[in-house]
Design a protein around this nucleic acid. Sequence first.
DNA 1: CTGAAAGCGCTTACAG
DNA 2: CTGAAAGCGCTTACAG
Lengths: 323, 323
Amino acid sequence: MTVTIKDVAKLAGVNASTVSRAIHDSKAISDKTKEKVKKAMLELGYSRNAAAQTLASGKAGAIGVVFPPIENKSEQPFFMKILTAINEAARQNNITVSIASGHSNDELLSQVKVMYQEKRVDGFIVLYAGEEDDVRSYLITDRIPFVIVGSTIERANEITAVDNNNQLMGSEAASYLASLGHKQLAFISNTDSGEVFHERYQGFVLKMQSLGLKGRLVKSKNKLDIGHATGLVVLDDILAIKVIQRLSEQGISVPADVSVISFNNSVFASLIHPYLTTFDINIRQLGHRSVQKLVHLLAYPDDFKEKVTVPFELKVRESTKAV
Amino acid sequence: MTVTIKDVAKLAGVNASTVSRAIHDSKAISDKTKEKVKKAMLELGYSRNAAAQTLASGKAGAIGVVFPPIENKSEQPFFMKILTAINEAARQNNITVSIASGHSNDELLSQVKVMYQEKRVDGFIVLYAGEEDDVRSYLITDRIPFVIVGSTIERANEITAVDNNNQLMGSEAASYLASLGHKQLAFISNTDSGEVFHERYQGFVLKMQSLGLKGRLVKSKNKLDIGHATGLVVLDDILAIKVIQRLSEQGISVPADVSVISFNNSVFASLIHPYLTTFDINIRQLGHRSVQKLVHLLAYPDDFKEKVTVPFELKVRESTKAV
DNA sequence: CTGAAAGCGCTTACAG
DNA sequence: CTGAAAGCGCTTACAG
């Protein structure tokens, strides 16, 4: 019932191996033969059998996307968005996307291992970059092709990474507020760990120094003590809208009294007023570049492990104003 | 280098076919032999080759998850959450999850077709239920196993569906507000199409009639005219927090002046105050049941196509209060 | 309860 | 430029 390469071969009057070569556009095959084969394929409605191809060639034609082992993935639009972008680019390369997700590190690791050992995927895109990650260690040690979306300090030479320049973003956040005339700034975060926090905050600090201004770090909690700051850089959109509400409860109005700038340009940024001035991190591009890099790695496993930096863009909206 | 069934057979001192049967726990194999085989597998670190298994058995051991062809999937936490739940349940069944997503219906359809024709997946879970959907028609016509998360009116007999009882939810929303003493209610929506809207609204209307109260439908727009209503049923959380802000701009305070109840219990419900009274739709369960039903369908393709209704739960928080 | 053999649908040296 | 053959790692009637 299913049309195989043999059926095509018969109709085209050639050998099955010739059909195979024609399908892969081998330069060993004449154009005339390729034409015949293509015609036969169309006529029969041929479709390759991925399993047979994988078995014979050793290539799965599929990649795995690894989600972080955290509970609240669904709260961050980032993941769905990049998954969509990854799938979009994968399709263009005739590649299928499978997923790996789990609550614990162990669960995730065993899932990744199984996917690879069963030869279901050729490589992985890892969507998080925490320190000391079992999955990443495993991938490096076993020399499995992967790219990471985000940044790592350790073993950077052995890792292909795709990321934004978070430090520059932190720096530009400070610059922008300064350019509006704000002199007293604060950086607000609900965490003091994670590469993203460190880089954005460091960029902020360095810029403040070079501007000769002083910027404080404020840990987000119920009562927010921003001192005399009139410009706030907030770690991400979701925290920003919580901060704005808390300030409002304390009688401080955004942007009338205080300007707020944040990061990610997620759905939260345009949910309620004031709409947030925020950095768009270009998730689509992050996704596309990840698969391009992985595809490259699959073809040239021993090539250098580069880091790709995707540009960001400031979206000025309602939460900032000149002093 | 890779350990195959043959290596295991040799070490266990049996034939490869015996190993295969032992792996699948065939009742034709003695316990003693199974033990030997298991021991050999462990010793060698055997892992099945999914491609070979698929090719030989005709089963891919993978399912496809089909996302709706809309741009703003990432804004709705629902999708990431159910994807995680689906993958969790799939893992328990030794099944891999691949994804299909696209901007247009055509793109999505071609993707689904390719995945199936290349035998990459055995069936699908479709995460949307719009009317007149090409993907669904294709799946039905070609008798491809699938389950849909959501509801359809047409061809319901031919479709295995997993859904909440949205009508009952709409009804209970009205009941709850009525139980708090609210007499004038309104249902607020930003759309007048879609099964979810229809069912929730219909439940609302029917309950209002049976209570002898009158409920209006209010289309959400910039200026919100809720008349004398003191109880608002809002189509979903994200709309609810927009509505609350708009009311606040109009000098109406929630819950002091007006109570608001909504649906989904997403991240938006506990983002800012007042935290929303909302229905938890039990997404995890929706995901788990979907794969269970699909797995069943894969084994018994000609079985009846049932509809599974997953219970919901009202989460009372800050946006509602007694009159 | 177990083995030997054929076959699933491809790819890829090898030979010409 | 093309064909014949072997092989990828499994499953599954068939036979005993």
